[in-house]
Design a protein around this nucleic acid. Structure first.
Length: 356
DNA sequence: CATCCGTGGGT
DNA sequence: TACCCAAGGAT
Protein backbone atom coordinates (compact mmCIF):
# COMPACT_ATOMS: atom_id res chain seq x y z
CA UNK A 1 0.00 0.00 0.00
CA UNK A 2 0.96 3.63 -0.41
CA UNK A 3 1.55 4.53 3.22
CA UNK A 4 1.81 8.29 2.72
CA UNK A 5 -1.45 8.43 0.78
CA UNK A 6 -3.16 6.31 3.44
CA UNK A 7 -1.97 8.60 6.22
CA UNK A 8 -3.02 11.82 4.54
CA UNK A 9 -6.37 10.45 3.34
CA UNK A 10 -7.10 9.26 6.88
CA UNK A 11 -5.97 12.40 8.69
CA UNK A 12 -7.64 14.76 6.20
CA UNK A 13 -10.89 12.89 6.71
CA UNK A 14 -10.48 13.22 10.48
CA UNK A 15 -9.86 16.96 10.19
CA UNK A 16 -13.09 17.37 8.24
CA UNK A 17 -15.39 14.86 9.86
CA UNK A 18 -14.37 14.44 13.50
CA UNK A 19 -17.12 14.75 16.09
CA UNK A 20 -17.17 17.79 18.33
CA UNK A 21 -16.41 16.17 21.70
CA UNK A 22 -15.70 17.93 25.00
CA UNK A 23 -12.26 16.32 25.45
CA UNK A 24 -11.17 17.56 22.04
CA UNK A 25 -11.23 21.19 23.15
CA UNK A 26 -7.64 21.07 24.41
CA UNK A 27 -4.76 18.68 24.97
CA UNK A 28 -4.20 19.16 28.69
CA UNK A 29 -2.56 15.87 29.76
CA UNK A 30 -4.73 15.53 32.90
CA UNK A 31 -7.95 16.08 30.95
CA UNK A 32 -6.88 13.74 28.17
CA UNK A 33 -6.05 11.14 30.80
CA UNK A 34 -9.43 11.47 32.50
CA UNK A 35 -11.24 11.12 29.18
CA UNK A 36 -9.26 8.06 28.17
CA UNK A 37 -9.97 6.27 31.44
CA UNK A 38 -13.67 7.06 31.21
CA UNK A 39 -13.77 5.84 27.62
CA UNK A 40 -12.34 2.43 28.49
CA UNK A 41 -15.05 -0.05 27.43
CA UNK A 42 -17.58 2.77 27.60
CA UNK A 43 -19.54 4.57 24.89
CA UNK A 44 -18.90 8.18 23.96
CA UNK A 45 -22.51 9.22 24.59
CA UNK A 46 -22.39 7.73 28.06
CA UNK A 47 -19.10 9.40 28.94
CA UNK A 48 -19.89 12.98 27.88
CA UNK A 49 -22.01 14.05 30.88
CA UNK A 50 -19.69 12.26 33.33
CA UNK A 51 -16.65 13.94 31.80
CA UNK A 52 -18.19 17.39 32.03
CA UNK A 53 -19.31 16.90 35.62
CA UNK A 54 -15.95 15.45 36.59
CA UNK A 55 -13.92 18.38 35.28
CA UNK A 56 -16.36 20.88 36.72
CA UNK A 57 -15.78 19.33 40.14
CA UNK A 58 -12.08 18.58 39.69
CA UNK A 59 -10.75 21.14 37.19
CA UNK A 60 -7.10 20.52 37.99
CA UNK A 61 -5.00 17.50 38.76
CA UNK A 62 -4.42 18.87 42.26
CA UNK A 63 -8.15 19.24 42.87
CA UNK A 64 -8.70 15.59 42.04
CA UNK A 65 -5.67 14.47 44.04
CA UNK A 66 -7.14 16.16 47.12
CA UNK A 67 -10.58 14.56 46.77
CA UNK A 68 -11.88 11.88 49.15
CA UNK A 69 -12.84 8.31 48.32
CA UNK A 70 -16.60 8.68 48.82
CA UNK A 71 -16.52 11.76 46.61
CA UNK A 72 -14.74 10.09 43.71
CA UNK A 73 -17.01 7.02 43.83
CA UNK A 74 -20.10 9.23 43.87
CA UNK A 75 -19.04 11.11 40.74
CA UNK A 76 -18.36 7.78 39.01
CA UNK A 77 -21.69 6.30 40.16
CA UNK A 78 -23.40 4.53 37.27
CA UNK A 79 -20.38 4.62 34.96
CA UNK A 80 -19.22 1.12 35.88
CA UNK A 81 -15.79 -0.49 36.28
CA UNK A 82 -15.28 1.42 39.51
CA UNK A 83 -11.68 0.32 39.96
CA UNK A 84 -10.93 2.77 37.15
CA UNK A 85 -11.62 5.79 39.32
CA UNK A 86 -9.84 4.37 42.36
CA UNK A 87 -6.79 3.56 40.23
CA UNK A 88 -6.91 6.98 38.59
CA UNK A 89 -7.06 8.60 42.01
CA UNK A 90 -4.07 6.58 43.22
CA UNK A 91 -2.14 7.45 40.08
CA UNK A 92 -2.98 11.14 40.15
CA UNK A 93 -1.88 11.43 43.78
CA UNK A 94 1.39 9.83 42.76
CA UNK A 95 1.85 12.29 39.89
CA UNK A 96 1.25 15.22 42.22
CA UNK A 97 3.58 13.83 44.88
CA UNK A 98 6.41 12.52 42.70
CA UNK A 99 6.20 14.49 39.44
CA UNK A 100 5.15 17.92 40.67
CA UNK A 101 1.72 17.45 39.12
CA UNK A 102 3.08 16.99 35.59
CA UNK A 103 1.85 13.81 33.90
CA UNK A 104 4.91 11.81 32.79
CA UNK A 105 5.63 12.01 29.07
CA UNK A 106 7.59 8.79 28.61
CA UNK A 107 6.01 5.41 27.95
CA UNK A 108 8.11 3.79 30.64
CA UNK A 109 7.09 6.20 33.41
CA UNK A 110 3.45 6.69 32.54
CA UNK A 111 2.98 2.93 32.25
CA UNK A 112 3.96 2.48 35.88
CA UNK A 113 0.87 4.41 36.98
CA UNK A 114 -2.14 2.48 38.26
CA UNK A 115 -4.75 1.91 35.58
CA UNK A 116 -2.50 2.99 32.72
CA UNK A 117 -2.06 0.09 30.32
CA UNK A 118 -0.60 0.07 26.81
CA UNK A 119 -3.66 1.66 25.22
CA UNK A 120 -4.03 4.53 27.69
CA UNK A 121 -0.28 5.17 27.68
CA UNK A 122 -0.27 5.48 23.89
CA UNK A 123 -3.40 7.62 23.85
CA UNK A 124 -2.18 10.15 26.43
CA UNK A 125 1.35 10.32 25.03
CA UNK A 126 0.18 10.85 21.46
CA UNK A 127 -2.76 13.17 22.11
CA UNK A 128 -1.30 15.27 24.92
CA UNK A 129 2.40 15.16 23.99
CA UNK A 130 2.47 14.31 20.28
CA UNK A 131 4.56 11.19 20.76
CA UNK A 132 4.46 8.68 17.86
CA UNK A 133 3.22 5.78 19.99
CA UNK A 134 0.31 3.63 18.82
CA UNK A 135 -2.90 3.50 20.85
CA UNK A 136 -4.40 0.13 20.08
CA UNK A 137 -7.98 -0.31 21.22
CA UNK A 138 -10.82 -2.40 19.85
CA UNK A 139 -11.51 0.10 17.07
CA UNK A 140 -7.91 0.13 15.92
CA UNK A 141 -7.67 -3.65 15.89
CA UNK A 142 -10.83 -3.87 13.80
CA UNK A 143 -9.71 -1.17 11.35
CA UNK A 144 -6.20 -2.52 10.93
CA UNK A 145 -7.41 -6.11 10.59
CA UNK A 146 -9.42 -4.96 7.57
CA UNK A 147 -6.92 -2.55 6.06
CA UNK A 148 -4.01 -5.00 6.33
CA UNK A 149 -5.99 -8.27 6.25
CA UNK A 150 -4.71 -9.35 9.66
CA UNK A 151 -6.47 -12.53 10.80
CA UNK A 152 -5.17 -12.79 14.35
CA UNK A 153 -7.99 -13.39 16.85
CA UNK A 154 -8.54 -10.00 18.50
CA UNK A 155 -10.05 -11.71 21.56
CA UNK A 156 -6.60 -13.10 22.40
CA UNK A 157 -4.33 -10.83 24.46
CA UNK A 158 -1.31 -11.97 22.47
CA UNK A 159 -2.78 -10.46 19.30
CA UNK A 160 -2.46 -6.90 20.57
CA UNK A 161 1.28 -6.97 19.86
CA UNK A 162 0.64 -7.70 16.18
CA UNK A 163 -1.58 -4.64 15.93
CA UNK A 164 0.83 -2.43 17.86
CA UNK A 165 3.58 -3.29 15.40
CA UNK A 166 1.20 -2.61 12.52
CA UNK A 167 0.25 0.72 14.10
CA UNK A 168 3.90 1.67 14.50
CA UNK A 169 4.53 0.79 10.88
CA UNK A 170 1.73 3.06 9.67
CA UNK A 171 2.31 5.87 12.21
CA UNK A 172 1.97 9.39 10.80
CA UNK A 173 4.88 11.15 12.47
CA UNK A 174 3.72 14.62 11.41
CA UNK A 175 0.71 14.27 13.71
CA UNK A 176 0.54 11.17 15.90
CA UNK A 177 -2.39 12.61 17.85
CA UNK A 178 -4.59 12.94 14.80
CA UNK A 179 -3.37 9.65 13.36
CA UNK A 180 -4.35 7.65 16.44
CA UNK A 181 -7.62 9.49 16.93
CA UNK A 182 -8.43 9.14 13.24
CA UNK A 183 -8.05 5.35 13.37
CA UNK A 184 -10.42 5.21 16.35
CA UNK A 185 -12.88 7.69 14.83
CA UNK A 186 -12.92 5.70 11.61
CA UNK A 187 -13.71 2.58 13.59
CA UNK A 188 -16.49 4.36 15.46
CA UNK A 189 -18.15 6.09 12.49
CA UNK A 190 -17.33 4.13 9.32
CA UNK A 191 -15.45 0.88 9.90
CA UNK A 192 -18.05 -0.44 12.35
CA UNK A 193 -18.25 -4.03 13.65
CA UNK A 194 -21.32 -4.86 11.58
CA UNK A 195 -22.31 -3.27 8.28
CA UNK A 196 -19.21 -1.10 7.75
CA UNK A 197 -19.90 1.93 5.54
CA UNK A 198 -17.18 1.13 3.03
CA UNK A 199 -18.71 3.35 0.34
CA UNK A 200 -18.17 6.36 2.62
CA UNK A 201 -14.71 5.26 3.74
CA UNK A 202 -11.88 7.72 3.06
CA UNK A 203 -9.30 4.94 2.91
CA UNK A 204 -11.18 2.19 1.11
CA UNK A 205 -8.74 2.29 -1.79
CA UNK A 206 -6.03 1.28 0.71
CA UNK A 207 -8.12 -1.46 2.29
CA UNK A 208 -7.25 -5.07 1.50
CA UNK A 209 -10.47 -6.42 3.02
CA UNK A 210 -12.59 -4.13 0.83
CA UNK A 211 -10.59 -5.08 -2.24
CA UNK A 212 -11.34 -8.76 -1.58
CA UNK A 213 -14.87 -8.15 -0.36
CA UNK A 214 -14.21 -9.79 3.03
CA UNK A 215 -14.78 -6.79 5.33
CA UNK A 216 -17.68 -8.61 6.97
CA UNK A 217 -15.43 -11.56 7.88
CA UNK A 218 -13.01 -9.38 9.84
CA UNK A 219 -11.84 -9.03 12.49
CA UNK A 220 -11.61 -12.61 13.66
CA UNK A 221 -12.98 -12.70 17.20
CA UNK A 222 -13.85 -15.79 19.23
CA UNK A 223 -16.82 -15.34 21.49
CA UNK A 224 -16.54 -15.48 25.21
CA UNK A 225 -18.26 -17.87 27.54
CA UNK A 226 -21.65 -17.15 29.00
CA UNK A 227 -22.46 -15.59 32.33
CA UNK A 228 -23.30 -17.34 35.58
CA UNK A 229 -26.37 -16.57 37.61
CA UNK A 230 -26.89 -15.63 41.25
CA UNK A 231 -30.06 -15.16 43.30
CA UNK A 232 -29.98 -12.58 46.10
CA UNK A 233 -32.32 -11.55 48.88
CA UNK A 234 -32.09 -7.94 50.03
CA UNK A 235 -33.86 -5.86 52.65
CA UNK A 236 -34.63 -2.16 52.87
CA UNK A 237 -34.76 -1.95 56.66
CA UNK A 238 -36.01 1.11 58.55
CA UNK A 239 -35.44 1.82 62.20
CA UNK A 240 -37.92 3.70 64.40
CA UNK A 241 -36.51 7.07 63.35
CA UNK A 242 -36.98 6.24 59.70
CA UNK A 243 -33.30 5.72 59.01
CA UNK A 244 -32.27 3.11 56.45
CA UNK A 245 -29.74 0.35 57.05
CA UNK A 246 -27.00 0.20 54.41
CA UNK A 247 -23.80 -1.78 54.05
CA UNK A 248 -20.47 -0.81 52.50
CA UNK A 249 -19.22 -3.51 50.15
CA UNK A 250 -15.82 -5.13 50.41
CA UNK A 251 -12.82 -3.13 49.24
CA UNK A 252 -12.00 -5.75 46.64
CA UNK A 253 -13.88 -7.47 43.88
CA UNK A 254 -17.24 -6.68 42.35
CA UNK A 255 -18.54 -3.15 42.97
CA UNK A 256 -15.78 -2.59 45.51
CA UNK A 257 -16.42 0.02 48.21
CA UNK A 258 -19.85 0.92 46.90
CA UNK A 259 -22.92 0.89 49.18
CA UNK A 260 -25.81 -1.58 49.10
CA UNK A 261 -28.78 -2.78 51.12
CA UNK A 262 -28.06 -5.77 53.37
CA UNK A 263 -28.37 -8.90 51.30
CA UNK A 264 -27.31 -12.49 50.95
CA UNK A 265 -26.87 -15.03 48.21
CA UNK A 266 -29.53 -17.77 48.24
CA UNK A 267 -30.02 -21.08 46.56
CA UNK A 268 -32.86 -20.81 44.05
CA UNK A 269 -36.07 -22.58 45.17
CA UNK A 270 -35.10 -22.12 48.81
CA UNK A 271 -35.33 -18.33 48.84
CA UNK A 272 -37.90 -17.90 51.57
CA UNK A 273 -38.40 -14.58 53.30
CA UNK A 274 -37.58 -16.07 56.71
CA UNK A 275 -34.00 -16.42 55.54
CA UNK A 276 -33.65 -12.64 55.72
CA UNK A 277 -34.71 -12.53 59.36
CA UNK A 278 -32.33 -15.36 60.20
CA UNK A 279 -29.56 -13.63 58.30
CA UNK A 280 -30.02 -10.31 60.11
CA UNK A 281 -30.22 -12.07 63.44
CA UNK A 282 -27.26 -14.37 62.92
CA UNK A 283 -24.97 -12.09 60.97
CA UNK A 284 -25.72 -8.72 62.57
CA UNK A 285 -27.61 -9.51 65.81
CA UNK A 286 -30.60 -7.53 64.57
CA UNK A 287 -34.21 -8.51 65.17
CA UNK A 288 -36.58 -7.29 62.49
CA UNK A 289 -39.95 -7.90 60.94
CA UNK A 290 -39.64 -8.67 57.25
CA UNK A 291 -42.60 -8.44 54.93
CA UNK A 292 -43.42 -11.74 53.34
CA UNK A 293 -43.80 -10.40 49.83
CA UNK A 294 -40.86 -8.78 48.05
CA UNK A 295 -41.72 -5.31 46.72
CA UNK A 296 -39.50 -5.67 43.66
CA UNK A 297 -37.46 -8.26 41.81
CA UNK A 298 -34.49 -6.65 40.13
CA UNK A 299 -32.77 -8.38 37.26
CA UNK A 300 -29.29 -7.03 36.65
CA UNK A 301 -26.78 -8.19 34.04
CA UNK A 302 -23.03 -7.75 34.42
CA UNK A 303 -20.40 -8.84 31.93
CA UNK A 304 -19.78 -12.21 33.59
CA UNK A 305 -22.68 -12.41 36.02
CA UNK A 306 -26.44 -12.00 36.31
CA UNK A 307 -28.20 -11.09 39.53
CA UNK A 308 -31.81 -11.57 40.46
CA UNK A 309 -32.45 -9.62 43.65
CA UNK A 310 -35.67 -10.04 45.60
CA UNK A 311 -35.99 -7.00 47.84
CA UNK A 312 -38.23 -6.93 50.91
CA UNK A 313 -39.26 -4.15 53.26
CA UNK A 314 -38.39 -4.56 56.90
CA UNK A 315 -38.77 -2.78 60.23
CA UNK A 316 -36.22 -2.86 63.02
CA UNK A 317 -37.39 -4.28 66.31
CA UNK A 318 -34.17 -4.27 68.27
CA UNK A 319 -30.44 -4.67 67.96
CA UNK A 320 -27.48 -2.45 67.36
CA UNK A 321 -24.86 -2.38 64.66
CA UNK A 322 -21.85 -1.69 66.84
CA UNK A 323 -19.02 -3.92 65.83
CA UNK A 324 -20.10 -3.99 62.21
CA UNK A 325 -17.91 -1.35 60.60
CA UNK A 326 -19.52 -1.76 57.20
CA UNK A 327 -23.08 -1.08 58.45
CA UNK A 328 -24.67 2.32 58.88
CA UNK A 329 -28.13 3.79 59.50
CA UNK A 330 -28.64 6.84 57.32
CA UNK A 331 -31.39 9.28 56.47
CA UNK A 332 -32.77 9.29 52.95
CA UNK A 333 -30.84 12.48 52.23
CA UNK A 334 -27.58 10.94 53.42
CA UNK A 335 -28.25 7.80 51.43
CA UNK A 336 -28.55 9.73 48.23
CA UNK A 337 -25.13 11.30 48.70
CA UNK A 338 -23.48 7.88 48.68
CA UNK A 339 -22.53 5.78 45.67
CA UNK A 340 -24.73 2.76 44.93
CA UNK A 341 -24.54 0.30 42.04
CA UNK A 342 -27.33 0.64 39.51
CA UNK A 343 -28.95 -2.59 40.73
CA UNK A 344 -29.51 -1.12 44.19
CA UNK A 345 -30.52 2.23 42.76
CA UNK A 346 -33.36 0.37 41.05
CA UNK A 347 -34.41 -1.09 44.41
CA UNK A 348 -34.26 2.29 46.10
CA UNK A 349 -36.35 3.96 43.41
CA UNK A 350 -38.96 1.21 43.62
CA UNK A 351 -39.00 1.49 47.41
CA UNK A 352 -39.60 5.23 47.31
CA UNK A 353 -42.34 4.91 44.70
CA UNK A 354 -44.17 2.19 46.61
CA UNK A 355 -43.66 3.39 50.18
CA UNK A 356 -45.11 6.44 51.80
C1' DC B 1 -3.39 -16.62 29.55
C1' DA B 2 -8.16 -16.70 31.25
C1' DT B 3 -11.07 -14.39 34.16
C1' DC B 4 -12.87 -10.62 36.50
C1' DC B 5 -14.67 -6.05 36.48
C1' DG B 6 -20.43 -2.38 34.96
C1' DT B 7 -23.49 -0.38 32.24
C1' DG B 8 -26.66 0.85 28.58
C1' DG B 9 -27.53 0.56 23.76
C1' DG B 10 -27.97 -1.99 19.35
C1' DT B 11 -29.72 -5.90 16.58
C1' DT C 1 -34.83 -13.02 23.63
C1' DA C 2 -30.08 -13.51 23.72
C1' DC C 3 -26.60 -12.14 22.44
C1' DC C 4 -22.82 -8.47 21.04
C1' DC C 5 -20.75 -4.46 21.74
C1' DA C 6 -17.64 0.27 23.68
C1' DA C 7 -11.39 4.77 23.24
C1' DG C 8 -8.99 -1.83 28.62
C1' DG C 9 -6.50 -3.03 32.87
C1' DA C 10 -5.43 -5.88 36.96
C1' DT C 11 -4.69 -10.26 38.65
Amino acid sequence: MNKEAFQTDLVHWFQEEQRDLPWRKNNNPYKVWVSEVMLQQTRVDTVIPYYNRFLEKFPTIEAFANAGEEEILKIWEGLGYYSRVRNLHTAVKEVVADYGGKVPDSKEEISKLKGVGPYTAGAVLSIAYGKPIPAVDGNVMRVLSRILLITDDIAKPASRKTFEIAGEGLMYHDNPSYFNQALMELGALICTPTSPACLLCPVREHCQAFEKGVQDELPVKTRKKSTRHEDLLAVVLKDKEGKILINKRNEKGLLANLWEFPNLKVVPLLDKWEILQDFLSTEYSIDAVIEQESFIEVQHVFTHLTWKIDAHRGKLKSGNIEGHESLRFVTEEELEELAFPVSYQKIWRAYKEQTQ
